[in-house]
Write a protein that binds this DNA or RNA. Sequence first.
DNA 1: AAAAAGTACTTTGCGATGCAAAGTTAATAC
DNA 2: GTATTAACTTTGCATCGCAAAGTACTTTTT
Lengths: 97, 97
Amino acid sequence: MTNIENLDKAFESRVRLGIMSVLNSAGQADFNTLKSMLGVSDGNLASHIKALEKLGYIETIKQFIHRKPNTSYAVTESGRKAFSAHIDALCSILKIK
Amino acid sequence: MTNIENLDKAFESRVRLGIMSVLNSAGQADFNTLKSMLGVSDGNLASHIKALEKLGYIETIKQFIHRKPNTSYAVTESGRKAFSAHIDALCSILKIK
DNA sequence: AAAAAGTACTTTGCGATGCAAAGTTAATAC
DNA sequence: GTATTAACTTTGCATCGCAAAGTACTTTTT
């Protein structure tokens, strides 16, 4: 089947797909790690993070490490499900796996 | 690796991804088949086709069938390569296959 | 012959998106 | 108190996606 409707609009952006992929496999990652892994500007990253957070797909973990502020992000349960469903849809469309 | 740069911008749109997927597995498909398989309006489909054609990823085959005009599309060699590279990039990012 | 319908577009208009660049806030270091 | 770092937010602009309407050509119907 070619059901492109099952693709999640939230993951059509390469940056948001990348964020989810990193967080999903690493468990969590902080702002600067994401920034350098994805090669995007801080403003751009922040806006994509905000979009994913607004959808409830990721959550923010703020803390201080060595007296410096550190913001980490992790995928929520709902985010994990949505991401997994998106990958399933992709695989079905692209006939992989 | 999380190299989102290897993703092809042309295939970030669900419609263009769908077009490529259908053409890639069916060999070729005509306008109305694509339209109904993807569930998009004719204007929308035409514009996405135009974009893929402009990139040299698909080619147009115009003919008459039962005295009716029929336009079919097929993936070009360069389109096949680009699509395959995009899928590889996706698989690498999503860690599938 | 005129009207209607089908195919494949193109054009228009508009709201949403993506991104760079600049500005902001708050804590820390010197 | 000045500078630096972290993490954003805001601004501005160019691009995108899409619906809706318009177009051109042909065939079918009346």
